[in-house]
Design a protein around this nucleic acid. Structure first.
Lengths: 365, 365
DNA sequence: ATGAAAGCGCTAACAC
DNA sequence: GTGTTAGCGCTTTCAT
């Protein structure tokens, strides 16, 4: 092909005017004879015609494109599902998405907004890769929808996970299994917004169950990682038997993975000796623990869909609130069981961090 | 703002013609008086002018956009870095990227190609989320560059990781540490193209070191996962002492994580009793093993950059080959050490899969 | 050193 | 039922 066929080529081939071609190709309700319609369609196919989105956009002032600005797409495992959700609904509605990752740089962000505006995108989404509060970038259009973050001041529509309810659901799993001494291994400073929310859920369920919260059972990790989780869990498990938790609710799955390590080093078997629940349902982490980790999933795909649906105006806005809370489902796997029948008799050896065997270890050999 | 300011608004504000505005805003080499230039720029800023990318694209037939078609962006942890690499160079050259994920569906793929063509993107990238051979989709433009996949028949330019060299590098780590009995825990059928390549590297280094490959030391996993890796490693570690490997090269980090589990269940300490190297340098997996896993990194960010650079024509094409091989650097962490001083005396108990203690375990209590 | 005007490919108001 | 034409906002040739 030397050059793209234009609408006039189709018109010529079909022996009609461009108006007619435009009309039939846009399925206008207009009265064009069925015969002509067929001729036009055949001609279009014959010359390999596809309308120029540029020309059409210029003329109609609707581009059928949407801009998606994200921070940090590179370094997060969750981005993909959010993008996929947004993508899917965009495609279903005939829209294309411009993806602009800013790496969190405000200058790049400003450029991105300008570029998108120059492209006359029909809608705009501002996505964060973890739930947080953001200052809406200067000059961002008012109908932008915020994905996985809350604009300060509730100035724009947004969707975030319901971390409070998720935290409650996690702890409820544990309470239902019979646990009463449940620790919360929290994130470190500066804490993500989800941290306090999940803790609220924790307290709520404890109250429901008539359990007094014990301050020693809430510990902050030194860093959000398996290593941090391991250290924190290790402190908890070193507590005297009557104060020691029988279950751990971890801020996220990576921390939970660290808790597994700590348990292992103390010879504790999960869930027989210790129950654990995580958060995030992080791919390749939660399901691949040994035993697989019970956790709470972050609804990234759904949030991505929701954001695109409201951005495109294809969702009946059921709620009045600017920010929509999306449910976090619990994913039951094998790390929760009833608490050990009797409290293990206190071992008087101080946390020596290693080869202590579980009370129940087989006296083998 | 009611409606976007047009170039004529700027012209009016500056008291010049639109030609002049266009010229100065596009930094034409033309001779426009410095004074006029300033007036125009001031006027543009004053009215908040930004040129319409649509109109400009329609006129120039260059849109400064590029289409990036990907399969499976949702379910892979590597997508982000590839996108970030592509993104960064696009931005540096003033281009915007349309991201279209097809989920691997051929129908959607065809639509995506059509949509991108309608948008008159200046360039196109076809990305896979893991190294494989693909049949180029029908109708894809000839100058498309393939990212992390090879088009069948070498019909298009492409960039993929150098898995053979990566496999060699991994095994060389082990050989350098003194190992001679090195197992390769391979992927399962249908094997990724990388599987055979890494194995080639393995054989190459063995040959270099004068080590005869032992067929029992190559085992396929039943599934690519921690569980698969665990089972495979378990078989290997159950071998009689004189046939047992002292080091494991795993097809990927998840499999390596499974190997850690198997080692742990046998009371083997890493790297004292067993050395392990993985592949992928997968985020939150490799670095968070206990001890952190030595592995080979996949150069996703760099491949993303490379692809966009050639797509945009901003890279001097140094190599004649249609497919560019990108180096996979080894990431040294703590899972490789010298082989155990003497071969452990063969335990005659058959692989009982559990509480066997390492020879060196403290006889505590 | 600056301006007039054509035209990129399309849609839609209006005429017939 | 179908055709003519203006114009979306810009770049660029050609005049001056």
């Amino acid at each position: 092909m030397t050059t793209r066929p234009r609408i006039s080529d189709v018109a010529a081939a079909a022996g009609v005017s461009v108006t007619t071609v435009s009309l039939v190709l846009n399925n206008a309700k207009t009265r064009i004879s069925a015969d002509t319609q067929q001729r036009v369609r055949d001609a279009a196919r014959a010359v390999g015609y596809a309308p120029s989105a540029l020309a059409r956009g210029l003329r109609t002032q609707r581009t059928r494109t949407v801009g998606l600005i994200s921070d940090q797409i590179a370094t997060t495992p969750f981005a993909g599902r959010m993008l996929a959700g947004a993508q899917d609904v965009a495609r279903d509605h005939g829209h294309l998405v411009f993806l602009l990752d800013t790496g969190g740089d405000a200058g790049i962000e400003a450029e991105a907004i300008a570029a998108l505006s120059a492209q006359q995108v029909d809608a705009m989404i501002y996505a964060c890769m973890w739930h947080r509060t953001v200052e809406p970038p200067a000059g961002i259009r008012a109908d932008t929808v915020f994905l996985d973050c809350r604009p300060a001041g509730g100035s724009h529509r947004s969707v975030v996970p319901d971390d409070r309810a998720g935290g409650a659901a996690a702890v409820r799993e544990l309470v239902a299994a019979g646990h009463r001494r449940i620790a919360y291994i929290d994130a470190s400073e500066p804490k993500p917004i989800a941290s306090a929310l999940r803790f609220e859920g924790y307290l709520e369920v404890l109250a429901e169950a008539g359990i007094d919260p014990d301050a020693v059972l809430r510990v902050d990790v030194t860093e959000i990682s398996a290593r941090g989780g391991r250290e924190a869990a290790d402190m908890l498990l070193a507590l005297p038997a009557d104060r020691r938790p029988t279950a751990l609710f971890c801020f996220n799955d990576r921390i939970a993975a660290g808790a597994y390590m700590a348990a292992r080093h103390r010879g504790l078997e999960i869930p027989r000796d210790l129950s654990i629940v995580g958060y995030d349902d992080q791919q390749f982490i939660a399901a691949e623990q040994d035993p697989p980790l019970t956790t709470v999933a972050l609804p990234h795909y759904e949030m991505g869909r929701w954001a695109m649906e409201v951005a495109l105006g294809v969702r009946a806005e059921e709620d009045e609130d600017a920010t929509h809370l999306m449910e976090c489902p619990v994913i039951r796997r094998d790390s929760v069981g009833p608490p050990p029948a009797q409290v293990a008799k206190p071992s008087r050896r101080r946390a020596s961090h290693n080869t202590e065997r579980p009370p129940s270890a087989a006296p083998d050999r």
